[in-house]
Nucleic acid binder design. Structure first.
Length: 560
RNA sequence: UGGGGAAUAGUUCAACGGUAGAACAGCGGACUCUGACUCCGUUAAUCUAGGUUCGAAUCCUAGUUCCCCAGCCA
């Protein structure tokens, strides 16, 4: 099938898409088939999203298909929970494998038959060496290995032993099946790699049917071949497995000839994308779970309020190449803001409230004012917000002794309450310790809705909620999980940011937020994008900050 | 002293022998009922040394630096 020009333009170009396009143009394949092959031993993270978008994206753009295949060859590490989570997350990201859901374990019998085939061809043997001895005879990076004393067993003996391995006659670790390639190869993967190991373990799908399991190398390429995968795309660390991948394809009667291509995995500043580390964070309780909003997992990002579209947009922007790289986290935040700015309804919320009494506003009066749901999109409609004599503003929006560049409320100064009135600060009320606890202000009734008939200007517009028109809430602010741009994965606990989560317990939200039933992030005006957390109860809303708005004032304030 | 890869603005990615370009970040400005958004401007790069060529980021040679590989993990 041909690639449409618009799809090509939108997709952008990278060396892998170039290869696919060239293969199609040269007629090497009639259509492209890719696959995303996760091992179900953890949750998917944003690094996987890069691979998912690449594999499913290429299939989409070139009119082919992409399979979801679980690489479930190690039952000691894999769990059903992960299988379920991975399917959910790929779907959430926006991709569809149609009927093409597969498992390496679907091919266990075929793989086994191919292993016997290699034995009969004299290209595989059962090795009785212990793991320790195998390591010792493998050689080093600079010295060749030495042949196993079991390397020249007869085909019959190998077959017998291998069948007995399958039958479960031997304990874990007693023997392995190895390919007979070259113990002196400069590529260590070719020094008689292990094809099967004995593992008396229950597999999530095959149960106790098997007591031997194929290695990644023996399973992956052949699974690709069975599924007629044309382009098997993986990360750089598999580059020197490619000769082995090709060796199996060349030496086995497989139904197709897939090729492997490698790209650089994603790294992000202030983030660790390693299953080992992510699993450690969860198991050691540094986070509340795989879906903790500080986690770079898709589940965590989703709970934080990051839309799938933002992740796709981010992946599109970072490109695909073969050079190791670390992407600035700001690039990710930019993609999130870009999508959310376009799509999020606006609301007002006061995170750290400061009480304001409007002295000239009648005690018993309240009124409703109209506020736009999205200032740049009239089609988004409006909502009513309640105003009254007692309101709350953000503590940060008042300074008793403002520096030159501070435009917001200060004693004697007039500002606009968004969509409401101009107010002027008349008096600052403090407690015994000198902390500001309340402001006494006056409002100008003529400025209703936020415009002064006399055309006078104010320097700032601030957000607010009224005491009677708001509900209390908990708001969770997140910062980087790690303190350093490039955390030490080997000792990740040392680089954890103790301030990665700040919980505000007495925020107040515009009442509409209590009844909104929006399953997406909302912009709290002037602050950022926030998403309702499942910890919310009917009586107490909990919101997560997805990402803050750009804050140039913070920069100015920091410099001063 | 083995094998496999990679080197372009601060960061990520383009440029496929013919004017080194974009995005993010930074800086300056305009606009603004969000110090947001948007818009405008601006700083800033070909790892080094040779060679081929009218012309090299691109081809060749030598070197430098960085990454991956010695699981019965993937």
């Amino acid at each position: 099938m041909a690639l449409t020009e618009t799809a090509a333009l939108e997709a952008g170009r990278d060396f892998i898409r170039d290869i696919v396009a060239a293969d199609l143009a040269a007629g090497r394949h009639r259509s492209v088939v890719t696959r995303f092959p996760p091992e179900p031993n953890g949750y998917l993270h944003i690094g996987h999203a890069k691979s998912i978008c690449l594999n499913f994206g290429i299939a989409e753009e070139f009119g082919g298909r992409c399979h979801l295949r679980f690489d479930d060859t190690n039952p000691t590490k894999e769990e059903q929970e992960y299988i379920d989570a991975i399917e959910r997350d790929v779907r959430w990201l926006g991709f569809d494998w149609g009927g093409h859901l597969y498992h390496a374990s679907d091919y266990f019998e075929q793989l086994y038959q191919w292993a016997e085939y290699l034995i009969r061809e004299g290209k595989a043997y059962v090795d009785d060496q212990s793991p320790h001895d195998m390591r010792a005879t493998r050689g080093t990076l600079t010295e060749p290995g030495t042949d196993s004393p079991y390397r020249e067993r007869s085909v019959d003996e190998n077959l017998d032993l291998f069948r007995r391995m399958r039958a479960g006659e031997f304990p874990n670790g007693a023997r392995v099946l190895r390919a007979k390639i070259d113990m002196a190869s400069g590529n260590i993967n070719l020094r008689d790699p292990t094809l099967y190991r004995i593992l008396h373990a229950k597999h999530p799908r095959t149960g106790t049917t098997w007591s031997i399991y194929p290695s990644y190398d023996f399973a992956h390429g052949q699974s690709d071949a069975i599924e007629q995968i044309t382009h098997s795309i993986c990360t750089l660390e598999f580059e020197d497995h490619r000769p082995l991948y090709d060796w199996f394809i060349a030496n086995l009667p497989v139904p197709s000839q897939p090729h492997q291509y490698e790209f650089a995995r994603l790294n992000l500043t202030y983030t660790v994308l390693s299953k080992r580390v992510l699993t450690g964070l969860v198991r050691e309780g540094h986070v509340s779970g795989w879906d903790d909003p500080r986690m770079p997992t898709l589940a965590g990002l989703r709970r934080r309020g990051v839309p799938a579209a933002a992740i796709r947009e981010f992946v599109k922007r970072i490109g695909v190449a073969k050079a190791n790289s670390v992407v600035d986290f700001a690039m990710f935040e930019h993609a999130v803001r870009e999508v959310l700015n376009r799509t999020s309804p606006r609301r007002m919320a006061v995170l750290r409230p400061l009480r304001v009494i409007i002295e000239n506003y009648p005690e018993d009066k309240t009124e409703t004012l109209e506020a736009a749901n999205h200032p740049d999109d009239p089609g988004a409609g409006t909502r009513q917000v309640r105003f009254g004599r007692e309101i709350f503003i953000e503590r940060d929006d008042f300074m008793e002794n403002p520096p030159k560049k501070f435009f917001r409320l200060a004693p004697g100064r007039e500002v606009r309450l968004r969509y409401a009135y101009f107010i002027t600060c008349r008096e600052v009320v403090k407690d015994e310790s000198g902390d500001v606890v309340e402001l006494r202000c006056t409002y100008d009734p003529a400025t209703r809705g936020g415009n002064a008939p006399d055309g006078r200007k104010v320097q700032a517009t601030i957000h607010w909620v009224s005491a009677s028109g708001s509900v209390p809430a908990e708001v969770r602010l997140y910062n980087h999980l790690f303190t350093r741009p490039e955390p030490n994965a080997a000792d990740f606990a040392a680089d954890l940011n103790p301030q990665s989560m700040e919980v505000l317990t007495d925020s107040r939200l515009e009442a509409a937020l209590a009844s909104d039933n929006i399953d997406a992030a909302v912009q709290f005006e002037r602050q950022g994008y926030f998403y309702r957390d499942p910890d919310s109860t009917p009586g107490r809303l909990v919101f997560n900050r997805t990402v803050g708005l750009r804050d140039t004032w913070a920069k100015v304030a920091n410099v001063a």
